[in-house]
Design a protein around this nucleic acid. Structure first.
Lengths: 342, 342
DNA sequence: GACATCAGGTTACACGTGTAACGGTTACTC
DNA sequence: GAGTAACCGTTACACGTGTAACCTGATGTC
């Protein structure tokens, strides 16, 4: 029937290096030497060709598990993603890292959130015997880090402050975002400042520190400056309520958490008859292009992360010599882009 | 110095089940039986407790490579992501799938684009001996699929039309998006229709079929309907040029590729003095909340993908019995949401 | 008391790979 | 022509697991 498709039967076992050796008429060791290019001058060009042809013909692919078992190590880097809705900033960051790591001889995989607690998750990762783990969402416990280290993981990076003992900290201090926004609003003469707090629990990890940073900036400006958190569900109705509260509280400055929420708030403020920026100055974050399409154009806190290449090099150093890299490292740079909304 | 940290020396080898057995005073087989719950009534409760305590004390974690080597299979599902900037639709889809697969006993990992060609990529995946591969970006070759199958992969899913021989096709026919948009514009009496084509090469995989769908819908409406592709870089300057071309060509309908590009186009059209929807009717795609914030509110093609649970079940069926699932399956449902811009 | 049953383990092997240590030719040197 | 070096491979072992087959006392059964 499907003779040219040559789909294997129920379970034709995958070819092994022994099969290749048999077909090529050499020993299995020779196959290994040839296919790994680890034969100095040990194998003649003729034999190499035979081995390669045989491997090709059988469609031989080495078994990563067996290889890692024998070698005792793995070129695996685990990127553990957040369960929050990731923006383009993060996804670009991941992409750059996944792009750069192969150049250092690693293969990277991105893991989603694991069911169960953090310790279970750490055990699951440890089973893979990765060379390094980059946990880009906070939560990993010190015990989880110990589990990883004991199972041979050379380097564990974890996000945030305070650092987890035994791990390197990648610091993306969200407080700076809130602080930059509020500092700008203060500079514009605003004293009664609102901070949009998204209701999405996945965003609480970012929203909390941003609010804290906003409060810190307000506090350092002296008395008389108030900061009021304003919950906002990602709907137009909720935004209308937020606009009402803005008017009632007489807020003259608003930090919108990020550009998307700020855009939502802007529309609601305008629909409520409030003038932006005259009555209420508004600042977002992320510096999305779309936020420049509204009128007034939205002011925004721009965040930048280092290029993937740079972080890949850091990971490599940490793997080869864990003590050679500093315990903490700040990744994020913030910059305020002032436009018409503030 | 750091006695309480008890960081291991240069390389304390990870504990193995033999270490656990020694500490617990039993044989290695018993350890395996206990930790895998595969001992019917073979091991007394007392011994089990001893083994568990020993494993816990050593921080024992099994070696996934060795296990897969012995078992001959892996509960691994590879999700191969696109290198295109993924929208919230896709990321939600991934998330749902990663959420659901563990419930079927699989562990899923997300792989980024691999350097090298598709055949190299397929070989790299095959090394992991996955149970299934879901390649959610087109490009995988028939040879790549054969490589995977020969190395023991039970099911390979690949995106798009035409299907790759030997693989199951997940169809997300982007032509339907363009067709739905243009059908709506025709219904609104528009005859000279422009289609925004993003310059980003990563989006060409979507943009091409959407344009083709638009053309097909126009053709089926009879003569006199024209479709004109309009290139758009994701910048405001490029959008201004696009608006000029709209005027010059006298277009009365515009499909904006997606909501983000449509928003960009809308702003440019308005800045150029064109009335939307009177002069030019505009339709986007993705049904973003943000697109409802502009005035006029943006009409949009909403796309829906099945829940992760449903697809996870499909993957499981394909793994257990590859012949039991149909060769192709349409995932995407489109629906036009008419608002004020058309 | 001989024999079967059974609970509670253990021994032994296989999975596929990398590599250190060890041959067997052939050619070259004194 | 014996020693030796260079060339080209091979043999043998280890990595950490899971499990079928086997063992060993103790407890019933007739």
């Amino acid at each position: 029937m499907n003779s040219d498709h040559d789909l294997p039967g129920p379970a034709a076992p995958p070819p092994t290096s022994a099969d290749v050796a048999k077909l090529a008429g050499v020993s299995r060791a020779t196959v290994s030497f040839v296919l790994n290019n680890t034969a100095g001058g040990r194998v003649s060009e003729q034999t190499r060709a035979k081995v390669r042809a045989a491997a090709d013909r059988l469609g031989y692919v080495p078994h990563a598990g067996a290889r890692s078992l024998r070698a005792g190590r793995t070129g695996l880097v685990l990127l553990v993603g957040s369960d929050a809705p990731i923006g383009s900033l993060f996804s670009g960051f991941y992409r750059g890292l996944q792009d750069a790591l192969p150049r250092y001889g690693y293969t990277s995989v991105l893991l989603g959130p694991t069911p169960g607690g953090w310790n279970d998750a750490a055990r699951a990762w440890a089973e893979l015997r990765p060379a390094a783990v980059l946990c880009l969402t906070p939560g990993l416990t010190p015990e989880g880090v110990r589990t990883l280290h004991r199972s041979g993981t050379r380097a564990v990076f974890t996000l945030g402050v305070p650092p987890v003992p035994g791990a390197h900290a990648l610091i993306m201090d969200q407080r700076e975002v809130g602080a930059a926004a509020v500092a700008h609003l203060l500079e514009r003469g605003r004293r009664r400042i609102g901070v949009v707090m998204p209701a999405d629990p996945g965003l609480a990890l970012f929203a909390g520190p941003r609010l804290a940073g906003a409060r810190a900036a307000a506090a350092s400006a002296g008395v008389g400056v108030t900061v009021e958190p304003l919950p906002l569900d990602y709907t137009e109705e909720s935004a209308a309520e937020l606009a009402d509260r803005c008017r009632e509280s007489g807020l003259d400055g608003l930090f919108g958490y990020n550009d998307e929420y700020a855009m939502l708030a802007l529309r609601a403020l305008q629909d409520a008859g409030l003038d932006v920026p005259r009555t209420t100055a508004l600042v977002g974050a992320d510096d999305l292009l779309l936020a420049r399409l509204l009128r007034p154009r939205l002011s925004s806190v721009r965040m930048r992360l280092p290029a993937g290449e740079e972080l890949a090099a850091l990971v490599d150093r940490a793997v080869t010599d864990p003590d050679a890299v500093p315990a903490g490292r700040n990744l994020m740079a913030v910059e305020l882009i002032a436009r018409d909304s503030s």
